[in-house]
Amino acid sequence: MVRTVVFDVGETLIDESRIWLRWAERLGVPPLTFLGVLGGCAALDLPHLEAFALVRPGLDVDEEAERWARDDPDGLRNGFDADDLYPDVRPALAALREAGLDVVVAGNQPPVARAALEAMDLPVSAIRTSDEWGVQKPDPGFFARVAELSGVAPQEIAYVGDRLDNDVLPAAEAGMRPVLLRRGPWGYLHARRPEAARTTVIDSLAELPAVLMG
């Protein structure tokens, strides 16, 4: 029986469209071009950073992000806020809490993401990022930290994410229930793969209470 539901962040809770559009503007690349290249990376199982290398060869993304911060210290830049939450997030999290399940957020994110998420006052008991843990998905150590944070056995945890490779299959290997959300470039592509049969595939977070409690 599932007692804790743990959520990935990007393209699970947060719509990253505005982030990628701001990056396209920053790099001087037409939005369709940049988003298309990003989708190609998803289809070819390339890291998302490869999209930057393809449109701006030789670019150091970390250095560019630092320059961007100096140029626009008060802007969101490659961050997010409550306006980027998918519409089904708050109702779904609240419904899970009302059903008696613990709700946690844990994903591959920089430290500033935790503050951004905490500012949204989501109905969750904990928010953690890979940077503060010092380990990233799909490393098994990340999911060990998830289990430790949740305080329940791995088989009592459902991990919800939009990627097979980074999120739900490693969670399954850790003994958790894998839930693949068909959302974002990776979600739509990965839901068509044979490996998706090893997971529970949903199209909206609103489906979770019935799926997990049914």
Rank of each mutant, 00 (worst) to 15 (best):
D84G: 12
L76M: 09
W68F: 11
F80N: 10
A65I: 03
R77C: 00
R90W: 02
L59C: 09
L93V: 03
V89H: 11
D71R: 13
V61I: 15
Y86H: 15
L76V: 08
V61G: 05
D83R: 14
D84S: 13
A92C: 11
A92M: 10
R90M: 02
D84L: 11
P73G: 12
R90A: 01
D74F: 03
V89D: 10
D81N: 08
D88G: 04
V89S: 08
R77Y: 00
R90T: 06
P73D: 11
R70E: 15
P91R: 00
A65G: 02
E66S: 09
L96T: 04
A95E: 05
V89F: 08
L59Q: 09
D81V: 05
R90Y: 00
P91M: 00
A65P: 00
N78M: 05
F80M: 11
D60C: 02
A95G: 03
D81I: 04
D71V: 03
G79H: 05
A69G: 10
A94Q: 12
D62I: 07
D60V: 06
G75C: 06
D83S: 13
L59N: 07
D62V: 13
L93T: 03
A82E: 15
W68R: 07
A69R: 15
N78S: 10
D60N: 11
F80T: 12
L93F: 01
L59E: 09
D71S: 11
L96P: 01
L93P: 01
D83Q: 08
D81K: 03
D84R: 12
Y86W: 14
D81A: 04
D84V: 13
R67F: 06
D84M: 12
G75T: 07
A65H: 01
A65V: 04
P87Q: 01
A69L: 14
L93S: 01
L93E: 01
G75K: 07
P87V: 02
D72S: 07
E64K: 10
V61K: 07
R70F: 06
N78P: 07
F80G: 12
D62K: 07
G75F: 06
D72W: 04
R70S: 14
G79F: 01
L76H: 02
P91V: 00
P91N: 00
P73R: 13
D74R: 08
A92Y: 11
A82F: 11
E63H: 14
R77K: 09
R70N: 08
N78G: 05
D88R: 05
V61W: 10
L96W: 03
